[in-house]
Structure formats: structure tokens, C-alpha cells
Amino acid sequence: MLKLLFFILIVRPFLLLVTGVHIQGRNNLSTTESSILVANHNSHLDTLILMSLYPLNQLSKVRPIAAADYFLKNKWLAWFSLTVLGIIPLKRQDNADRSQLFTDIKAALNQGHSVIIFPEGSRGEANTLAPFKSGIAHLAKDFPQTPVIPIYMHGTGKVLPKGEKLLVPFGIDVMIGKPLYYTAQTTKSDFMQHLEQSIRGLQQSLLGI
């Protein structure tokens, strides 16, 4: 309920009036199907924009995966992250068992939810892609039926970059690529390479480089 209100009253009007979001390749994302959304990460706005790709009645089924050490660091932020955003916390420092690490994410996907993952690990500088973390290949391997949607966003790193509090309006572009699937023939490193290439391709066609 709070999630819905937050999006209706704050996020949607903000994205519509203040920044404006131009979406390309919308047909590549089915908003009713459980998917794994993979995107570059430059700003806190990224999560909100990706969640806004979904209609309001699907919103409760879209779960961003977020670092537990950051988003649960105090009581208020934890309440906001878990109740209003509905994040799935991920203990990123933990070098413990991988299967243990992804339990919550897998449970969500099994329930038919969609998840949002930023494989760069944390917010980086605008226009530069950091090396991807390979955890996503493990997920894709366990859910070969679930489409992995590559997405490139541009502009969010100007509106609200890491370490800044002042929000400055700029236009935002979102480019959604063709879904990828993990097939039996592929290896994890192939899959990661494929994914990274796909997101780089989106970046190049968006920025014209």
C-alpha cells in the first residue's frame, strides 16, 4: 500500500514532470511475466525508474535487489527499503555459500516476482560500465525459463549522482534490449560476456558512439 502511494504521489509525477523519461524497446519487456532486469547503475533513481516500467497493479511483484550493508544500515532506511520499496536485501560482503546468498531472490522468482539487479555491484560514474559481478549467471542458470532483460539507462547519473544531495533535472533515457536466456550449452562466463556485450551495445546505440 505504501509502495503504491509512494509511486503514485511522488515517483511517477516526479519522473513525468521534473525529468521526463524516454523509453526505447518497451516491447522487449513483458510486464506480466517474471523477469530478471539487469541494468547499469549510476544513481538511486535507477531503481525507481525500472520499477516505474511496470503498471501500478504489478508493482508489488517487482523487487529490487539491494545491498544489505547500505540499505539496512539504520532503522529508518531499513523501514523505507523493506516496506516502501520492497527490496530483497543481499549481504554483499559475505563470502559465504552462494546458494545461501540467493535464497531470498530464488524464493521471489519462484513466486513469479520480477527482480532488479545491478551487476556492477554499486553506483558508478556516469557513462562508464564497471566489470559485472557473476552472481547473475548463477541465478539465470537456475531459472532458464526466466528472461534476463538487459537495460541501459542514461541521465540518472547527472540528475542524482552518487555522493550528491542536490537533485538537478536532466532528461533520462532508458533503452531495453532483447531478452536473454541461459541455455544448457552456455557456460557462466559465456553468459556473462553475452550480457555485458548486450548492455554495452545498448549504451553505444543510445549515446551514438
Partner: peptide, 25 residues
């Protein structure tokens, strides 16, 4: 506002310019 935002989105700017861009709005 929309024209200015489109212009600021097009042109290169430094991270240090964000504040005066905000004042421009």
C-alpha cells in the same frame, strides 16, 4: 523549463556545474 532541460541534456557539462544549472532552473 522543458526547452532549457532539453538543452542541458544535450550539451556537455561537468559535475561541478550541477549547482549553477539548478539555479538556472
Amino acid at each position: 523549463y522543458l526547452a532549457l532541460k532539453e538543452y542541458f541534456t544535450l550539451i556537455p557539462s561537468r559535475r561541478a556545474d550541477r549547482r549553477i544549472i539548478f539555479y538556472a532552473y
